[in-house]
Design a protein around this nucleic acid. Structure first.
Lengths: 340, 340
DNA sequence: TTGAAAGCGCTAACAC
DNA sequence: GTGTTAGCGCTTTCAA
C-alpha cells in the first residue's frame, strides 16, 4: 500500500520556518485575528502551492465534532430510498455537515473485527429501527439521534409520519365499491412490537375489512434475493390471480408493489380501474407517471428532512433540550388507478 | 456540545491494569498470537462490558488505510443514481470497505474553509468527471482512482460503457420508419471535451440524421431547480408539440426524459408506438414497467460495479500495476415503445 | 508474553 | 503575534 503523500501543517510550517500551531490558526481560521496579515498570506499561499488538504480524521480526533451525520437506511434503491436520501442531502448542502450512509443490518456484523461505520459522529438519523444494542450504545455516549418515518423510536427525538388517516380513507374508498380487497404486503401480519411504532398498514387494512365485513386477502410479496420488489409483486400477484381469480381492489404495501401489481393486472388483461382498482403507498415520483396514474399515500419527504434536521441540529447545539417530536400526517393522493 | 463518553483502549487497559498496547493487540487482532489466551479473554470481556467501540478516525490516523472509498456522484435520485449506488453497495458488502458518497460539485466549494469529504481515503470511484484540481491532487498523493461510466477519465483506471453501437442501432430503427426524429436532450450540442470521453448520445443521433437525410430536431429539457427531469421533459415536450406538431419518433437522453415524454404524448392523445415511437437510455428499472414498456439502452450496472471494484482493489493492493481499463458495451433493449 | 514510548495530523491552552 | 506543549485514540517498533 502506497504511503500517502499528503502535505501536512507541519510540512507547511517547516517550509515557512514558523510553528505548526500558527499554520493551524491560519488554516482553521480560528484564532486568525491574532496572526499578522503577512504571516497569514504566506501560509495561505504556501498551502495553495503545496497542495495542502486538511485531514478530517486528525481534526475530528483532536477537536470536537466530526460533522458526520450517520444516516441509517437499508439501501439506495428503490426510489423510496433515493428520494429520502436526496431530501436529506439537499437539506445538508448548505451546512458543514455531511451524510454518512450506513445500513445497520450489515454494518453491525462483526465480521471485520468491528462494524463498519465506527467513525466519530455528531449525530444519527434513523430511517429504520435501530438494533437495541446500537441504540443503547448511542445513548450511553450521548450521541444525538433523530428517528424518522413510519417506525420511529419513541424514546428518541423523532419525526413520525402518520399514515393512518389517509390509509383508512383510501382503503375505505377501495372497499366501498368492491367485493374483494386484497392487501399486497411485504410480511405476514406482525406481532405487536415495542420500543418503536407499529407499522400501520396492516392494522388499517384489517380495520376496514372488519368495518365492512369483507374478508382479508393477503398476498405476500417478500423481499427476495436478487429480485426487485416490483418484480416479486408482479410474479406473486400474477400467480395469485391465476389460482384465486382476481380481487377487484388491491391495496399495496408500497408503490413498488403497486407498480408490480399493475404489471400483473395488465398481463392478465384486467383493466385498471375498470375491473380492479389500485392504491399504493409512499408517493414515490414513479407512481404519478404510470398509466393509469397510481393513487397513493404521499410520504412528505422534504418536510421530514427539514424537520428532522432541525431537531438534530438543535440537539447537537444544545444536548439538554427536552424530547423533540413531531407528527406529520400523510395525505391520500387520488389518481386514476382508484377511481370508482 | 456534549463531550463524547466513548470508552477507549486506554480505559480498558487501566481497568485491567495492563498496557494499552496489549489491548490494541487483542482488539485489532493483529499480534493476537503473541498475547496469552487469559489476557485475550479478559480484554475481550472488558471491551464487551464497557461498551468499547473502536474510533476509526484514530485508527486511520495511526495506521494505514481508512477503508473509505469515496464515490463521486451528483445525487441519490433519480433512479440511475440509486441503481448505480446500490450496485456498488452490494459489491462492497462482503469487504471491509465502505462507500463515502461525495458530490464533487458541492463538496468542492470552499465555503467552510475546506471542502467536505477531506477524509483519508483509500480510493475513489468517479461516476462523473472530476474537476481538474481534484484529479491533480489525487494523483499527487497517489490515491487510486477508477473512473466509471460514460464519462471516464482516460488517464486513470477506468471502466467505460460504450453506448455507441446500441445507440446507432436504436436510432437507426427509429429513423427507418419515421419522418421526424427528435432528440429530447439535456444540453445543447456540446463542444468537444478533452481529458475524458465525449458523451456519445448527440453524436450518434447526429450521425444517423446525416445518414438518413433527416433534419435534427432538438428538444432541450434542462436540469431545473426543484423540478424532476421527467417533469421538465413532460412540460417541455408538451410545449414543443403544441408549437411544432409532433415528431413521429423521440430519442431521449435518458429514461427519465423518456418517461416524461411518454406522459406528454399521452396528454396530447398521441399513441405510442402507433403514432410516435420512443427510445430511452440507461435502462433503469422503471423503463420496463411503463405502459407501453419503454425501449432503452441498458447500462450494465452490476458489471460496472463488479469490474471497477476489482480494478480499484487491485490498485490499492498493488499501486504499480499498469493502467487498467475495460470497455463494456451497452445493449439495445427493444420493447413495445419503439415497435415499428 | 507484555510494556514503554514514539508518532500519525491536528487543536487549544498557555507562555513568551 | 508567535512558539511551546500537551494531548485526542490508536498502531507499531523496540525492550524487557
Amino acid at each position: 500500500m502506497s504511503k500517502s503523500q499528503s502535505v501536512s501543517m507541519t510540512d507547511i510550517a517547516r517550509h515557512l520556518n514558523i510553528s505548526q500551531a500558527t499554520v493551524s490558526y491560519v488554516l482553521s481560521g480560528r484564532a486568525s485575528g491574532s496572526v499578522s496579515e503577512v504571516t497569514r498570506k504566506r501560509v495561505m499561499e504556501a498551502a495553495q502551492e503545496m497542495g495542502y488538504r486538511r485531514n478530517r480524521a486528525a481534526q475530528a480526533l483532536a477537536g470536537h465534532g466530526s460533522h458526520i451525520i450517520e444516516f441509517c437506511v437499508t439501501g439506495f434503491y428503490p426510489s423510496y430510498y433515493g428520494q429520502i436520501l436526496e431530501a436529506f442531502d439537499v437539506e445538508l448542502r448548505s451546512t458543514p455537515y455531511e451524510l454518512h450512509i450506513v445500513n445497520p443490518v450489515f454494518s453491525n456484523e462483526k465480521e471485520w473485527g468491528f462494524s463498519k461505520g465506527d467513525w466519530p459522529i455528531d449525530g444519527v438519523i434513523a430511517d429504520t429501527p435501530l438494533p437495541e444494542d446500537m441504540l443503547a450504545s448511542l445513548k450511553q455516549r450521548g450521541t444525538p439521534v433523530v428517528s424518522v418515518g413510519l417506525f420511529t423510536h419513541t424514546e428518541t427525538d423523532h419525526v413520525f409520519v402518520d399514515m393512518t388517516p389517509a390509509l383508512l380513507e383510501g382503503i375505505r374508498q377501495l372497499a366501498a365499491h368492491s367485493r374483494r380487497v386484497a392487501f399486497v404486503s411485504m410480511w405476514e401480519p406482525h406481532p405487536v412490537t415495542v420500543g418503536y411504532r407499529q407499522d400501520s398498514r396492516y392494522p388499517a387494512y384489517s380495520q376496514v375489512m372488519r368495518e365492512t365485513g369483507l374478508k382479508e386477502e393477503m398476498i405476500i410479496a417478500h423481499e427476495s434475493e436478487g429480485l426487485s420488489q416490483r418484480a416479486v409483486a408482479h410474479q406473486t400477484v400474477r400467480d395469485y390471480i391465476a389460482q384465486n381469480g382476481s380481487p377487484d381492489a388491491f391495496f399495496c404495501f408500497n408503490d413498488e408493489r403497486a407498480i408490480g401489481t399493475l404489471a400483473a393486472l395488465r398481463d392478465m388483461g384486467i383493466r385498471v380501474p375498470q375491473d380492479a382498482r389500485l392504491l399504493g403507498c409512499d408517493g414515490i415520483e414513479d407512481s404519478a407517471y404510470h398509466s393509469p396514474a397510481i393513487s397513493t399515500i404521499q410520504y412528505p419527504f422534504a418536510e421530514v428532512a427539514r424537520l428532522s434536521w432541525q431537531f438534530l441540529l438543535n440537539r447537537i447545539k444544545n444536548p439538554d433540550v427536552p424530547l423533540q417530536s413531531a407528527t406529520l400526517t400523510a395525505q391520500l393522493v387520488q389518481r386514476a388507478s382508484s377511481a370508482p
